[in-house]
Design a protein around this nucleic acid. Structure first.
Length: 206
DNA sequence: GACCAGGCACATC
DNA sequence: GATGTGCATGGT
């Protein structure tokens, strides 16, 4: 495995990123892709079209992503928020202040810290560092943070040490996941981890 | 057949 | 505020 650009979050539109962010909760990405393909094939991957879809039909189309009834409800909750506050427009939404957006997203049922930051970073291009299980594992293995550090604590750690650049956050997160998968899954102590943290600004080179 | 995968809400203590 | 449990699929 190489650790260059990871092409993290391949998606055709920002709306597709949002849908993917909700569908991928506790689910392998390959299962999400099928659901996205089913929606895309029916030209349903827009806020307007998805909002018109009956809940049961939406659930059926995203079945492959697991917990489909729950996720259908969560997608509709997000759409209700987007329609109600930003007239269904991610463009309008993306112009709001970052902290306000995070607060609003966390208030949507089904959107927790990781999903909120994924939407902020990958869909809206905002500098929100996404923390996931791999991120925490790699950090605690390197003794950069305690293993029980909370989500906000881990996010603050990166946002404190890195320039506030969405592209850098994107690449850093992708690299952490790649490293976590390759080295930290089954090893209690990973002496061979190639990641060299340079938290003053540059991503590690692959 | 168990375990995992790019979480979250809710109940309970 | 910490911990446990349901959600549910597809891959290994």
């Amino acid at each position: 495995m190489r650790f260059g650009p990871q092409h993290w979050w391949p998606a055709r539109t920002r709306f597709e990123v949002v849908v993917g962010a909700i569908l991928t909760q506790n689910t392998a990405w390959s299962n999400v892709e099928r659901a996205l393909a089913a929606l895309r094939g029916r030209r349903l991957l827009t806020a307007a079209r998805l909002s018109e879809l009956p809940p049961g039909r939406l659930a059926g189309l995203i079945r492959s992503s697991g917990t489909f009834r729950v996720k259908a409800r969560r997608l509709r909750a997000f759409l209700a928020y987007l329609n109600g506050r930003y007239q269904g427009s991610l463009d309008r939404m993306s112009r709001a202040p970052l902290e306000a957006l995070r607060r609003e997203l966390l208030a949507v049922p089904g959107i927790g810290p990781e999903t909120a930051d994924s939407i902020l970073l990958y869909a809206l291009g905002r500098p929100a560092f996404v923390v996931d299980a791999y991120t925490r594992r790699v950090l605690s293995r390197h003794r950069l943070l305690p293993h029980d550090a909370g989500y906000q604590e881990v996010r603050a750690f990166f946002e404190r040490h890195l320039p506030s650049d969405p592209r850098l956050f994107n690449e850093y997160h992708a690299l952490l996941v790649a490293v976590g998968k390759a080295y930290c899954r089954s090893r209690p102590h990973c002496g061979e981890c190639p990641l060299r943290f340079d938290l003053r600004g540059r991503p590690p080179r692959g």
